[in-house]
Amino acid sequence: MNILQSFKMAMKSIMGNKMRSFLTMLGIIIGVASVIILVSLVNGQMSYMTESFASMGTNQISVNVTNLSTRSVSVDEMYEFYEDNRDLFAQMTPNVTVSTTVKNGTESSTSTTVSGVSEEYLEMKDMELEAGRFIQYSDIVSRQKVCVVGYYVAWDLYGGVDKALDQTIKIGGNAFRIIGVVSRQDDDELESGGSDDFVWMPYSCAAKMTRNANISSYTFATADMNHTDEAKTAIDDFLMEIFKDEDLYRITAMSELLDSLNSMIAMMSMLLGGIAGISLLVAGVGVMNIMLVSVTERTREIGIRKALGAKKRTIMQQFVIEAAVTSSIGGVIGIVIGSVATTVIGTAMGMNATPTPSAVVVSFSVSVGIGLLFGYMPANRAANLNPIDALRSE
């Protein structure tokens, strides 16, 4: 008997006991669908997190220092270091965060992020202007009270981009002139505290508003991501020479954080996939149980075939293929259900979740493997039946 004949007999047996076959497949269906749904949803959510994280700039290095009265680094010293290492760095900006309220007349916002930045900040963030111009070096040197606002601020406080341009906005009680509006970042919706709710001003003005003579936060953009380690080492050597204590400064490369995040994503995905995969093992026990019942029911048939000259491997092949076919059909149904459920749940949760090819391939392969593995013992039992004892069974 060839494999094709064994396959036809397996299908005949499955169709002859539809309800029993379906209940046998049910465990496989649930297991495969669970693996696909969990892994795909986790990957969808984590992909969103990774994209959000990457938008911060994977080529950026954040530097935070603790300035003391005896040991400190000034903005001029940081810029001097930056100019001396232009082969490593593409842009640099001091960062000054201002905790305050922004107002236009009676309209105000407490959720708006207010920051002091340099003239290179827009290019560093890879953003574009919707209207107007960006902060210039002359604005920083002369401490001009000008600012660039996000798309949300322009619409929320002024009713439009054109209406906001060249208007006055109150920041912490100080009047600033809006010289530019940044293009919209969030395509879904404009919301308070979102990625379009910000105000940028010259860092010199922000430092004056916060009464902070020594700025403690800087961001560098590397000229080449392949030289991130070299860039970090250069910053570390420079700051160590000044502070003499590595606890007084912190250097963080965004690319390293992104790599760590990706590792966590992969580990979490494997963990959840493994947990869901336990149901496949339980389903395998169900397959083995039903196959043992099938062998018992067909003992006389096995005896007749062996008496007519059927070889041991032929009998074993028949039952192993039957178990594998049962598991495979369950796996295919599970893939369909899992794929549809992933799309539906992902849409309901507001994220882009699609079945990952790896989850589909692995779950289906495991389902087929389980059919072969758990179908072997019943098949071996059938193959080792004594023909005379098998013919005597009722």
Rank of each mutant, 00 (worst) to 15 (best):
S118G: 09
T113Q: 12
E241K: 14
I215S: 07
N17H: 15
R177L: 11
P94S: 09
E301A: 04
L157D: 06
I278Q: 07
E120Q: 15
Y376M: 15
S13H: 01
G330A: 05
Y121R: 09
I290Q: 00
P378K: 05
A33Y: 07
A234E: 09
K8T: 05
E120R: 08
S358K: 09
V32S: 00
S13W: 01
N85G: 10
D245K: 06
G330T: 02
A164R: 05
N384I: 01
T210L: 02
I179E: 02
I290H: 02
R313Q: 12
L292R: 06
T66K: 14
E51G: 11
L190I: 07
Y218D: 07
Y152K: 10
K12S: 14
S72F: 15
M11L: 15
S358G: 10
L258R: 05
V336H: 03
L391E: 08
S142T: 14
T228G: 05
V161R: 07
T50R: 12
N2R: 11
G180P: 01
T299M: 12
V35W: 04
E322H: 05
M267T: 13
I179H: 03
F53T: 12
S192C: 00
M254A: 11
T100Y: 04
G27Q: 06
T347Y: 04
D229R: 10
S40H: 09
T210I: 06
S217E: 13
I290L: 04
A207E: 08
R313M: 09
I36H: 00
G57F: 09
V161Q: 10
D389A: 11
G173V: 03
R184H: 03
A221I: 01
E120M: 10
N380H: 14
D162A: 12
I337Q: 03
Q45Y: 15
I169Y: 06
K170D: 15
R313N: 13
P355Y: 03
N262G: 09
G371L: 10
N212L: 09
A341D: 07
I179G: 06
T50E: 14
T70Q: 12
E130K: 13
I333K: 05
S367T: 04
N85I: 08
F7D: 00
T356F: 00
K312W: 08
T58M: 11
T354A: 13
L272Q: 07
A164Y: 03
N289M: 04
A341W: 05
L88R: 03
T106R: 12
S99E: 12
D188Q: 14
G173A: 04
I304G: 04
G44D: 08
R250V: 05
L68R: 13
T106D: 15
Y79V: 05
V65W: 10
S216Y: 08
G160L: 02
